[in-house]
Amino acid sequence: MNGDPGEAGGRPPLRTRVVLGEAAAARRASPDPVRADLAEQTPVGEALVKGLVRAQLALAIRLSLVVAAGLGALPLLFAVAPAVGRVKVLGVNLPWLLLGLFSFPFLLGVGWAYVRWAERNEQDFTAVIRRPEA
């Protein structure tokens, strides 16, 4: 490989430098009509992006409230009503079952719902952007 620009006698160097984060490279991407509409921040483009961000954030917050209510309230519940801790299901105290067993499928279920709905939000956004182009 002839990588040294000086040695190459004026030809552009063949080697490309790897830049971590690729931030600069992505920002200089080639112009594209769709990109221009959004990235030049016309009021319409700006409103669309804000709408998407708001929808995704609202979804994330709603689901974290579900977790806060479902899991986060448990220590308080156990403190306020100690009798709950003494309830036995199949010979095991309820707090052990709730924390040791059921919390994990619960978290997974919430995550699954989030992925589904977040992807739907993105599809809606894509559809709005693409419609005028089609």
Binding site: A60, S64, P75, L99, L107, V110, G111, A118
Partner: peptide, 23 residues
């Protein structure tokens, strides 16, 4: 039973990551 919050929290950290950060 009180320390079961460690494994629950270690797993739930990924849910917070998924909801707010991943994509």
């Amino acid at each position: 039973v009180d320390v079961l919050w460690y494994p629950v929290g270690f797993a739930a950290g990924y849910l917070a990551l998924l909801l707010f950060v991943a994509a």
